[in-house]
């Protein structure tokens, strides 16, 4: 079996929130304490991506999908867990030790307006990861040539290389962001909601471009999105997150044909659809995502789940492998199939 490009085991990321130490001071049992207020944004998430594979991470706002992405890209440091990129454990490396890892892993960001430095020329932006790798031994003509090549690959022309980001539209900026990620020829690109800020017609262009690049360079993607229909087009496998937990993983076809977790079902049926025939009677879920500061006991989804029963409030369901592939964290699906090798 080939080695996965990305292998994440039991990733946990918590943030301390709240303000300075003085806002947290409390008298507890006669002692003055400043307990840290902790949000568990990501709770023991495991995933792996094979070479050339596209794994989509799906969920609503606040489910921790972006945090997973940014922790793997080591913008945040993980609280615990292992992150292996191309077999190399990176979770404990510091920024300097991470530099060679950046050659394998790059990232595309959500906001095309904030993800490019407004004071840099386009050619400098796209070449930056490469320049960081090559210890500045590149001549400026090499840089220009490489930048123009990269820009051409994403559909921008050479005259545009000397311009600044504000002279481009949202879709063009996202192309620039893709060219930047491509500059070091990484094996894995983490794409954090790369099309959610774009108009529909532009969204299609960017998705097509990303799929072309995958075929051309053998890229793997970790594709973070809230939009299931976008995910359907690009993903090989899908992982659904809710409140920092992974609730279901499955191959694309399986997930869309037979979603098993009630939350996945709700996500699928809640999405508005242009095709009238496809509007299903909705698996109605009510309410909104509870605060991550104050997780419900047991299963996190039970407060909104139409199928919740007594056990859900007591015991947190584990993510268990299922017959026919994939895995689900739900008490309705927690019988391990007998034939399944453990």
């Amino acid at each position: 079996m080939t080695q996965p490009v990305l292998d994440v085991r039991n990733l946990v990321k918590s943030f301390t929130v709240g303000d300075g130490i003085f806002d947290r001071l409390r008298f507890t049992g006669g002692k003055l304490l400043a307990p840290p207020k902790v949000v568990n944004a990501v709770n023991s998430v495991s995933l792996s991506i094979a070479p050339g594979e596209v794994l989509a991470l799906v969920g609503e706002s606040g489910c921790g999908k972006s945090t997973v992405a940014k922790t793997i890209a080591r913008i945040h440091a993980p609280t615990s867990g292992e992150i292996r990129i191309d077999g190399k454990e990176v979770s404990c490396l510091n920024q300097k030790e991470l530099r060679p890892v950046r050659r394998e892993l790059q990232m595309i960001f959500q906001d095309p307006y904030a993800s490019l430095n407004p004071r840099q020329r386009i050619k400098d932006i796209v070449i930056e990861p490469l320049r960081a790798q090559s210890d500045r031994r590149m001549s400026s003509s090499d840089i220009d040539a490489e930048a123009i090549k990269l820009l051409a690959r994403v559909g921008l022309n050479a005259e545009q290389a000397n311009r600044y980001p504000h002279q481009f539209s949202g879709g063009q900026r996202q192309r620039i962001g893709i060219a930047r990620a491509l500059s070091v020829r990484p094996k894995l690109i983490i794409a954090d909601e790369p099309v959610s800020a774009l108009d529909v017609s532009i969204q299609a262009q960017i998705l097509n471009l990303m799929m072309d690049l995958r075929d051309e360079f053998g890229l793997s993607y970790l594709f973070v999105s809230h939009d299931l229909s976008v995910v359907h087009h690009i993903a090989d496998r899908v992982a659904v997150m809710y409140l920092g937990f992974m609730v279901e993983t499955a191959s694309r076809d399986q997930l869309f044909a037979t979603p098993r977790h009630p939350y996945t079902q709700a996500l699928l049926s809640a999405a508005p659809n242009v095709d009238k025939a496809l509007r299903k009677p909705q698996a109605e879920i009510t309410g909104e995502v509870p605060s991550a500061l104050n997780l419900p006991s047991g299963c996190c989804f039970r407060t909104r789940c139409p199928l919740a029963f007594a056990r859900c409030a007591v015991e947190r369901p584990a993510l268990l492998p299922q017959r026919g592939g994939g895995s689900v964290a739900c008490h309705l699906h927690d019988t391990v199939p007998e034939a399944f090798p453990t």
């Binding site: 080591r74 530099r99 990232m107 960001f109 993800s115 930056e128 960081a132 790798q133």
Partner: peptide
Amino acid sequence: QAARVAGL
């Protein structure tokens, strides 16, 4: 964040 991912 992009600059950090670039390895700067």
